[in-house]
Structures are given as structure tokens and as C-alpha cells.
Computed example of a mutant assay.
Amino acid sequence: MYVVASFKLNKNLERVIAEIEYNNIDRKNILALPLAKKIEQKTEKSYHQKSFEILPITGSIIALFGMIYGFILEWGPILWGLIGLGLGVMIGGVIDVLRIKKTREQKENESLTEVFLLIHCSNKTQAQQMKTLIWKWSPAGVATYTKQAEDGSND
């Protein structure tokens, strides 16, 4: 009898394997099989093309405000427009860097590979015990598989 579980590659997988070994399942009866993922180049290109679009927007907006209020302030509209442009580009750069970090973290979380955990159990009670143990570590799914007799008879 086999217990099959699906996990994302993270610390929970390592913890559940350690706990299974702690419950007297030999290491040779445990198989962790990672699945390969296809990396798409198309999303990577669009990600880099949009990476610095906020810099000119914030620079232009704050430069415009600098020129408008520059008529009131002491140094004049041209100097305050340039100061606003520099300040806007810096603010846009900070926003863009934070946005890039956030999308990279999301891509890393999405790109985690899925791992199938296969445990060979000697009897049904041990398989049931392993299922309850695995469910504590929040897998994507758990199933049991009983190998049928090879003589063609179904029990």
C-alpha cells in the first residue's frame, strides 16, 4: 500500500519527511519526486519592458508642480521644475524598485516546483496513520494506492 502526497517545495516538505522517518518508516520506503517546470520567456520580456515606466510619469508630474509653484517661490519656475523633475525621478525609482521586488517575490512563489511524496506502507493502519500525519503539514493533496494482485482478480 502506498500513500502519495503533493507538496510545494518548502520547509513543510522537509518537516513531514523528518516526522515520517521519526515514525519508524525506513528512508528507503520514502520517495520525494520533484516535477520540472517549463520556464516561459514571454513573461520575462514583458516584465523587463515595463520595469521603468513609472520614472518619467512621476518625474513629469512633480516637475509640472515645481514649475507651477515656481512662479510663487523665490528661485523661479525653471529651477523648481528641474528640482521637481529630479525629485520625481527619485520617487519613481523607489516606487519602481519596490514594485519590481514585489513582482519578483510573487514570481518566486509561483515558480516553486511541486514535489510528489510516495511512502510505502506495510499495512492499512500504517497508511492511515501516515495520511493523518501528512495532512498536518498542509499538502496540496493526499491519496492512497493499493497495488492489485497480479493474477487479475480484484478484491
Rank of each mutant, 00 (worst) to 15 (best):
L82E: 07
T43D: 01
S60G: 12
W80S: 01
G92H: 10
Q106L: 14
R27E: 07
L73Y: 08
E44A: 05
I62M: 10
I30P: 01
K42D: 10
G88S: 01
F65A: 04
I57T: 09
T113Q: 12
S60Q: 07
I30S: 00
G76R: 04
K42C: 02
M67K: 01
K28I: 05
R27P: 07
G66P: 01
I83M: 04
L33T: 04
I57E: 09
I68V: 06
K45S: 08
I100F: 13
G93Q: 09
D96L: 12
I30H: 02
S60N: 11
L79S: 12
L98C: 13
L73H: 09
P77G: 14
I54C: 06
E44P: 09
W75E: 13
Q106V: 15
K50H: 04
I39M: 07
I61N: 15
T113E: 15
G93N: 08
A32P: 02
G84C: 03
K107E: 15
P77D: 04
E44Y: 08
L98D: 13
L64S: 01
L31K: 02
I62W: 03
I100C: 06
Q49M: 03
I30C: 00
G76Q: 00
F65G: 03
G70N: 09
L98V: 13
K37A: 04
I100V: 09
G86R: 10
L73D: 09
L35K: 04
E74F: 11
S111W: 15
I68M: 08
E74M: 13
N29K: 05
P34Q: 00
I30K: 00
F71M: 00
G70Q: 00
I78R: 02
T103Q: 06
K37I: 05
P56H: 11
L79I: 10
L87W: 08
F71N: 07
S46P: 00
T103S: 15
N109M: 12
G86I: 15
E40W: 00
I54P: 00
I91S: 10
G86F: 09
T58H: 07
S46F: 03
R104N: 07
I57S: 02
R99D: 09
E108V: 09
K107T: 11
T58N: 02
Y69V: 01
